[in-house]
Design a protein around this nucleic acid. Structure first.
Lengths: 112, 112
DNA sequence: AACCCTCCTATTGACATTCTAGAGGTCACC
DNA sequence: GGTGACCTCTAGAATGTCAATAGGAGGGTT
């Protein structure tokens, strides 16, 4: 079996941030989200359906996204998610949190 | 109560990297590790004992660190951990992984 | 029309890992 | 004997992995 050093497991807690950010650009269904994630991260990030859909429900339950059924571009039944106002705030909070965290970890990694 | 926006929950999976990196600078006990983490991250990162010691056992079980009891600087009994050769390799692997991940997430966050 | 195949999209469940929270124990030093 | 340094443990929650299942649409074939 060939080495596939490309895929990386998601770090827990970052999926919500990713989804919120992508929805910031407009409503999307689950499948589109997985495609965007792969495309934008250039194949590094890859989301299981088994992670994504529970995450979307979570976000919906917390009022950060709203969902409705509608036909997809290919005329299949799809559930579209979009950011709520609360979701936009949450996005900014999580983004800030991520930045603080990754900066702090950067400090540690570059400590002599 | 004063705002303390300072503490951040660790992202799962990053504690091992942090510990390995700190041990790269020489053997240390659990207490010293918590102090270093706080100091270097300027108070942003903070590790529970309930996370740290299990992590150290994990790393030991996997052969990435070796441990022994020895008196601490304050003459208390302390368990000192140090990197093994395998641990050094693991550190580089996890560091690379972190960098790939955080770069990919950066791409997503800055996507238009 | 009836059939099948493939692609798109969603759902679910069994399981593992790692974190949080917080209590408690021991021993040295002042 | 109090305080600070240091370790251990349990219980629980969150979130991820993997892998299986479901079903409708479009298109081709008979």
């Amino acid at each position: 079996m060939p080495k596939t050093p490309s895929k990386i497991d998601l770090l827990q807690g970052t999926l919500d941030l990713i989804v919120l950010k992508l929805l910031r650009g407009g409503a999307a269904n689950g499948w589109q989200l997985t495609q965007s994630i792969q495309a934008i991260s250039r194949g590094v990030l890859d989301v299981n359906y088994g992670s994504l859909y529970p995450a979307l429900r979570r976000l919906e339950a917390r009022g950060w996204v709203a969902a409705h059924w509608a036909p997809s571009e290919n005329n299949r039944r799809a559930r579209y998610y979009e950011l709520t106002a609360a979701g936009r705030k949450q996005l900014e909070a999580e983004r800030a949190s991520w930045e603080r965290f990754s900066h702090a970890l950067g400090l540690i990694l570059q400590a002599d």
